[in-house]
């Protein structure tokens, strides 16, 4: 009797595994195919029926991406824009989340909800004009600043939720222990909120890295970020598929690796806040 029940359970869980595997297969197949495209020579990519694993791997595709397209510069641009926009967002967003939570002014976060609903383009038009007027176009600053539209709301939103759940008694204890409000924040509230900061950091990083629409308007040949650079490769017709797929993989690989390693935090952050910028 008992062994039958156990057998039944193993069968059930095997069945579930199978179902889950089928559901995940479009994801696996997509990325496999992406890797395959990026490692094939032109002939293999044009073959019919298509080839998944070629006889000769075209590692040169990756070299070509960097050699012919200035990709190192664009990679560096992406790091600068995303890095600066995310760090700035943490510097101003974490204290703001704290202040809003403690002021019990969560309602003011409505502004963030509305920002979330606003199409990115309606930020672009006015800021584009302002940047032109300040003659900042041609530097990375316009992109860094406009990426704040993505990163700041994510950080503030997640941090409000986080600070709301940290017990206020700890901060009262600290103020009785002689801490000034700033010390309370820096020595007590901030260390306790570290997991929340990590979550908001990762999500802000990802959504800023992936952002495309701000770049196509604000970037020129020297200031492109990776998504824009990849798109520009595509729009030159006749470009061969191998290097194109390699470029796509290079763009998204950092994010995918981050997703793999920080899966738990990302899931936590997304289910809690369910935010996405832009």
């Amino acid at each position: 009797m008992a062994s039958r029940l156990i057998r039944r359970k193993t069968l059930d869980s095997l069945g579930l595994f199978f179902v889950a595997f089928v559901m995940v297969s479009p994801v696996i197949l997509f990325f496999l195919w992406m890797i395959s495209l990026s490692l094939k020579y032109e002939i293999d990519n044009g073959a019919y029926p298509p080839i998944l694993i070629p006889e000769n791997f075209a590692w040169s595709n990756y070299l070509k991406v960097f050699e012919e397209n200035n990709f190192l510069l664009y990679f560096w641009n992406s790091i600068l824009v995303t890095g600066t926009a995310t760090l700035l967002a943490l510097v101003i967003g974490v204290p703001a989340g704290y202040g809003i939570a403690r002021l019990k002014a969560e309602k003011s976060a409505v502004i963030i909800m509305i920002a979330r609903m606003t199409p990115g383009l309606s930020f672009l038009i006015p800021l584009f004009l302002v940047f032109q007027w300040l003659s900042l176009i041609g530097t990375l600053w316009p992109q860094i600043i406009i990426h704040l539209v993505v990163t700041v709301p994510i950080v503030v939103w997640i941090m409000i939720g986080y600070f709301e759940t940290t017990p206020i008694e700890l901060e009262e204890a600290a103020s009785i222990d002689g801490a000034t409000p700033w010390q309370v924040f820096r020595l007590v509230a901030l260390p306790i909120a570290k997991p929340g900061i990590v979550v908001s950091f990762i999500l802000a990083l990802i959504f800023s890295w992936n952002n495309f629409v701000f770049g196509i308007v604000l970037a020129n040949r020297e200031t492109r970020t990776l998504p824009v650079a990849v798109y520009n490769m595509l729009s030159f017709e006749q470009v061969s598929w191998g290097p194109l797929a390699a470029a796509a993989l290079i763009v998204t690989l950092p994010v995918l690796l981050l997703t793999m390693f920080a899966q738990r935090q990302i899931v936590a952050g997304l289910t809690a806040g369910a935010v996405k910028g832009g």
């Binding site: 869980s13 095997l14 579930l16 595994f17 889950a20 595997f21 559901m23 995940v24 994801v27 696996i28 997509f30 990325f31 195919w33 992406m34 495209l37 990802i206 890295w209 992936n210 495309f212 990776l226 998504p227 824009v228 990849v230 798109y231 595509l234 598929w241 194109l244 797929a245 470029a247 796509a248 993989l249 763009v251 998204t252 994010v255 995918l256 981050l258 997703t259 793999m260 899966q263 990302i266 899931v267």
Partner: peptide, 28 residues
Amino acid sequence: FPFRGFLRGVFVMPMMATPVAVALVWTM
């Protein structure tokens, strides 16, 4: 079920992937 965490991790990947990169591969 076995490998649930891993499969869920893989399943989540598309929404984190860079949309432009994804679009490019789909175009092909």
